[in-house]
Structure formats: structure tokens, C-alpha cells
Nucleic acid binder design. Sequence first.
DNA 1: TAAGTAAGTATCCTAAAGGGTACTGTTAGA
DNA 2: TCTAACAGTACCCTTTAGGATACTTACTTA
Lengths: 116, 116
Amino acid sequence: MRRLMIKPELCKVDTALGIIVGKWKPTILLHLLVEDTLRFNALKRKIPDITQRMLTKQLRELEEEGLVSRTVYPVVPPKVEYTITPYGKKLEPILHAMHEWGKAHIERKSQPSTEE
Amino acid sequence: MRRLMIKPELCKVDTALGIIVGKWKPTILLHLLVEDTLRFNALKRKIPDITQRMLTKQLRELEEEGLVSRTVYPVVPPKVEYTITPYGKKLEPILHAMHEWGKAHIERKSQPSTEE
DNA sequence: TAAGTAAGTATCCTAAAGGGTACTGTTAGA
DNA sequence: TCTAACAGTACCCTTTAGGATACTTACTTA
């Protein structure tokens, strides 16, 4: 039974998940955590399988929630930079913990003998 | 730029998300983290909006991943108990961190003056 | 003159997740 | 004799997320 938990009915895990879930959102955030600022096409090159449409959509949603900021330079051809906000950086420990858990999960599945 | 991160292309965040995402999975896990063991209908009563079909589905998926174990007692009417596994309990810190982040996110949205 | 670049939109389509409702079998209790 | 309890399944339908492809604009370089 252990250490007391949050009341499930008041829990905001779903709120957090609603914001970081999206086929490409964690990937985008991780790239921006590494590089801090990236242009649209630079991101696209780093995530080869994403389409332009999807990259735009996911970035717009991340911007909407304040995790990423978008700066347009009125030049031609266009220049648009995406930067992770200080607020977005607060997700880093969570992403890191999920990565570790996911890695352990994969290892566990590959050696089904593990009991625990 | 800060403290070095996981290489985005090797990151297992998506693996972890694939397992905890599901409309009712966090809620179910939280209830089981509080109570440790619950019968099917007890869970259903705790989550009034879920349908039987959905509860069954989500539980089966959690069982599949080893987060929850299912014990059937061959009595009538049926008795089936769902228990969180030690492995499932390892998600607690992550769920807790997401809850805290989600709560902060809601507060932040309600006071749009906050700059940071 | 033609092609390339950057950062997108517009349109249409598919797949996956989620949900409603009705049904099952066996027993205890009213 | 009828109803309720428990733990589901079967069947079908709607919503949402994700994706393929083509198009746009304005400028530069070959």
C-alpha cells in the first residue's frame, strides 16, 4: 500500500499527457532541448520521416501550450526559428525519467525470465 | 543549451508513452497505486464514466505489459482481482511528476500574466 | 530562362482509438 | 418466480490522429 498518492480523481496526469502526447512531440522537444533553437527545415532534416504538414501541426500545438516559441524573420526566402521556452525546459526531467523507464521496459521484454 | 540530453534518435520516451497512454490507463493505475488490489466492479465504481468494455480493454493492455496482474477465483458469481505489480509501481514517480507538471500548467493558464 | 530555397497550406484519405448497447451464465436472496 | 450481482463478450458505429500529395510566394543563383 505504501506512501500516499495523489487522489486519482484530482490527478492531473491526463492534463500533462494531453500536452506531450503526439506522434512527433517528444522527438521535437528532445531536439530543441539539445539545440535550443532550430529552423523549420533544420528540424525537418533531423526528423526525416515527418512530413511538412505534421511538423507544422505539432509545432503549432507545442507553441499553443507555451513549450516552444516561434520567431519569424521577414526575409525571403522565409526564416522561422523555433526555440524551447524556459517553461518547456521544465519537462526535461519527466522526459528523462520516461526514457529510462522505456529503456528498462524494452530490456525486460527481451529477457522474459526477469521476475519483479 | 545546458546539461547533455539523451540522443533524440535513441530516445525511448515514445516506448514509455505507448504504454501509459490510453484514455483510462493513468486513472486505473492511480487507483491501483492507492488500493493495491481491486475487483473489476470496484474499479468500475471508482471510475463512473468508464464502460465495461473500455475497462476490460484497458486492463487487458495493462496486464499485457506487466503493470497489472489479474487473478480469477473460480466462484460464482465471478471474482476477479486486479493488482498492481512491483514493476507497475515503478511508474509512480513518473506519474507523480506528471501530475505536478499538469497542475502547474493549469495554474499557469489561469493566470496569463506569468512570464517564465 | 529555369530551377531551387524556405516555410508553409489545402485537400483528401486511412487507421486507430474510443464508445453504446445488448447479451451471456450461474447463483443467492426476496 | 423474479431480480440482482459479477465479470465479462459481440457487434457496430463515431471521432480523432495521422499521413500523402500537390500547391504557393518571393527572391537568388546558374
